[in-house]
Design a protein around this nucleic acid. Sequence first.
DNA 1: CCTTAATTGTTGTATATACAAATATTGTCT
DNA 2: AGACAATATTTGTATATACAACAATTAAGG
Lengths: 151, 151
Amino acid sequence: MGTIEQEIKQQKKFESEHEKAMVNILYTSSWLHNKNAARFKEFDITPEQYNVLRILRGSHPKPLMLGEVTCRMLDKNSNATRLVEKLRLKGLVKRELCPNNRRQVDIVITDKGLALLSKIDFTTEEWNASLKTITKAEAQELNRILDKLRD
Amino acid sequence: MGTIEQEIKQQKKFESEHEKAMVNILYTSSWLHNKNAARFKEFDITPEQYNVLRILRGSHPKPLMLGEVTCRMLDKNSNATRLVEKLRLKGLVKRELCPNNRRQVDIVITDKGLALLSKIDFTTEEWNASLKTITKAEAQELNRILDKLRD
DNA sequence: CCTTAATTGTTGTATATACAAATATTGTCT
DNA sequence: AGACAATATTTGTATATACAACAATTAAGG
């Protein structure tokens, strides 16, 4: 582990701090995603499926329609229909056709889904500890700069 | 655009700045990736293919074997064999079996590949301008914190 | 030499992303 | 009511990721 230049064995200097920051965000995101995938593997779900479950727990017991799940997802272009279907096959969510609007499909997390999230919650402490290489102040600064970047 | 909470319509507060930072990195990375994809679309390549071309230009005219391409890629788990094959079909790279080691495949960027990168370089100014919502000092701070996070 | 281990790359399968087209339903306007 | 637009979701296709199994070649040790 080290600077981003070392990680990707870059010979030349980056042209600017801004370009370096872009590469650094993409690289760090991939690194985080891989760590998350390893974390969820024993529970037989992917980071993306975990994200959907978290969204549904956030609104539980109120159901969310597919479109509402989509716009809360980290990756907006992803396809909620197919992710939800995978979760449904595992019994972690329910799909219900909405009676007042038959275009709409309501999605609810099941008890089994809630129980799985509870189990995962127990591993969160260890996970958080692994992010403690940066201080709380640095995390705040990181959040401020990332929000500003997307402005 | 706004804070990460607004973006993903999160009702509850994050449990910690660290957890929020993790979500923020993943979300911002997806945002950047989408912007990049749009930028490269007119040139008919994906961000991942662009990354491989950049790596090969970095070592040009010296060829790189597949393993060297892989370890320089932003996403290490990706599959360089198939990415390189797509680029080869477009005539942007060449594959050559290495005579002294027949396990090894040398990859070189072609003149056509170099020409494409040159064309894309012309759009880089506009691209960099779009990242200027943060200052150079903020970009440096961002790089420092991300490097520290992965330590 | 011959066997075994290490290196390098390819292929198969499941998952997810990106985008566009298709389908069904509801709302609106005249 | 009928035409047309808007909404909500599904489906198809191409791309990329994740991981494991496989094959070919080279290196190493007895």
